[in-house]
């Protein structure tokens, strides 16, 4: 029975037709998602390139003096200085500090974090 004439509620499928349909169906799913993967990867690269361009432009536009002013700026009231991060992303560290402050029911600027280290 040729593959394209399989439909028909009454007729049972031949084993070979059924196997071919199964293999073909799996291949179509893979093809569709691989195609999508290529497209998504390309979109990601385009946006990453745009973001890199924007990042390259941004510091050039800022006057050097302003940067210096920023680094010399006094710390916020209640700040206890820098926290040492050992193998921890700044984002994760910020999240951990926020969680600790929340659990302790204390404002974050009243707590002093000395270092955060990932336990292996």
């Amino acid at each position: 029975m040729p593959l394209l004439t399989i439909p028909g509620e009454e007729a049972g499928l031949q084993v070979m037709d059924s196997l071919i349909t199964a293999v073909l169906g799996y291949a179509v799913v893979f093809f569709g998602l691989v195609l999508l993967m290529v497209v998504v990867t390309m979109i990601g690269k385009i946006f990453a390139a745009k973001a890199a361009k924007a990042a390259d432009k941004a510091p050039a536009e800022e006057p050097v003096t302003e940067v210096k002013e920023e680094t010399d700026a006094p710390t916020a009231p209640g700040s206890a200085g820098d926290v040492k991060l050992h193998n921890v992303e700044p984002k994760i560290a910020a999240m951990l500090m926020a969680i600790v402050a929340d659990k302790m029911q204390k404002p974050i600027n009243e707590l002093r974090f000395i270092s955060i280290k990932e336990v292996e």
Binding site: I6, P7, G8, E9, E10, A11, G12, L13, V15, S18, L19, T21, A22, V23, G25, Y26
Partner: peptide, 14 residues
């Protein structure tokens, strides 16, 4: 697709 194949072996229609 494997369950589809198995179901046809058990006599279910396509």
């Amino acid at each position: 697709f494997l369950a589809f194949f198995g179901a046809t072996l058990l006599g279910f229609t396509g």
